[in-house]
Nucleic acid binder design. Structure first.
Lengths: 211, 211
DNA sequence: CACAATAAGTGACTAAATCACTTATTGAAT
DNA sequence: ATTCAATAAGTGATTTAGTCACTTATTGTG
């Protein structure tokens, strides 16, 4: 129904009672269906106001909200995965970027000096914008989902371990490589950037967990 | 509660009525909670039998089951994303593989001659096993989730466009490179393998969609 | 004109049933 | 002794009718 009506994030759904009438079931049944959609962030409930379409409608990959991250070493696991996956994405971006991509990339690089909107505006996250410049939406969604893993830790990492100036300088260099269409340089710079972050975190966790 | 009790896929949950008593709510409320868990495949209902823990409990990345893939060109989009991401994963596998990984890899390569269990047994899917050999679980889960995108099309692809013998031969060569610890070769062979599949599909879709 | 009271609309939840389905048990026929 | 159909208990699926909690636009008063 959301698809058929072409509803987009922010749009309101019909009320539970109305949906119940339309589908000829009762409200508890409707609620069960809506709760499933809520689980993948397709819709959100606002008590007393209504239910609204959310960002999940156009997000094919997502993080399982029902798996709690307990093991602390998985922060490094995540960084290791990013070190493998993101450099080639940067290379692809360097090969395929449009002028619009460059504009968005520059904007998000500047935002890394004051990353205040990074959580609610994913397109302002540098690494997401970088993946977006590859022209492949699925690639962008993959990186986006990956960055949602251990999101809580990542916020703390940004606040405690990240040197914002250095971060920004790294990002600017990557943007330059992408602008010049230098795939190898973009990949290498991205790898160095992530390795530096990994090292900074690993050293604070103590050598026994650094592998 | 699933975590606390250490329940694993296949284990049964308490009945709805019992859960309702335990949490001091009524059954419709319990059902809403369970439906959310169902949406990310943490649990599954079996009418008349019970509700059981499912594979989603230890899957951090997953495909949004509520987004229907309509555009046919996204098959190529998926292949393009895999061409970017999987070669470096293969390289990482060549660098980190253990003997156990090699055994699993050989097994899954053989399975690609008769890929009958590929859907219900993800570890038998060659590209998942390859990612697993990297030693990074998140990397494996990422590839696993990616392969779930357009799963329906992928089954058809396997049945119609794939030359099983050639597929198997490609896989064997990749395994050899991983065994020898030759990261560059593993990456190159994986890229060639995926590019060949992409070309086969692109040609059947007609040149206008091949980009 | 500002602002508090109001009323209508919405989600959240309850309570007590009934229906649909599965599965282990039971007991009779073979 | 074995087989197999009837049975009963347990489980999920859904209904019905209503109440509570919250939001928001409207209205009437100061």
């Amino acid at each position: 129904m959301i698809e058929a009506a072409g509803l987009e994030p922010g749009d309101a759904l019909a009320s539970s009672r109305e949906l119940a009438k339309r589908f000829e079931v009762t409200t508890p049944t409707i609620r069960e269906a809506l709760r499933r959609l809520e689980a993948t962030d397709v819709i959100r409930f606002r008590h007393g106001s209504g239910t609204y379409v959310s960002g999940g409608v156009n997000r094919r990959l997502l993080v399982n909200p029902h798996v709690s991250e307990s093991r602390s070493e998985s922060v490094l696991e995540l960084l290791d995965a990013r070190i493998v996956l993101e450099p080639p994405v940067a290379a692809a971006a360097a090969a395929a970027r449009t002028d619009d991509d460059l504009t968005a990339l520059t904007l998000s690089a500047d935002n890394s000096l004051k990353p205040q909107y990074a959580d609610e505006r994913p397109e302002l996250h540098f690494h997401v914008a970088l993946a977006g410049a590859s022209g492949n939406l699925l690639l962008r969604e993959t990186i986006e989902a990956l960055l949602q893993v251990r999101a809580r830790d990542q916020i703390e990492i940004r606040h405690r371990y990240t040197d914002r100036d250095r971060d920004h300088a790294d990002h600017v260099r990557i943007v330059e490589a992408v602008r010049d269409g230098d795939a190898d340089a973009a990949a290498a710079l991205t790898r160095d950037h992530l390795v530096a972050i990994r090292e900074a975190i690993a050293s604070t966790l103590g050598p026994e967990q650094a592998r």
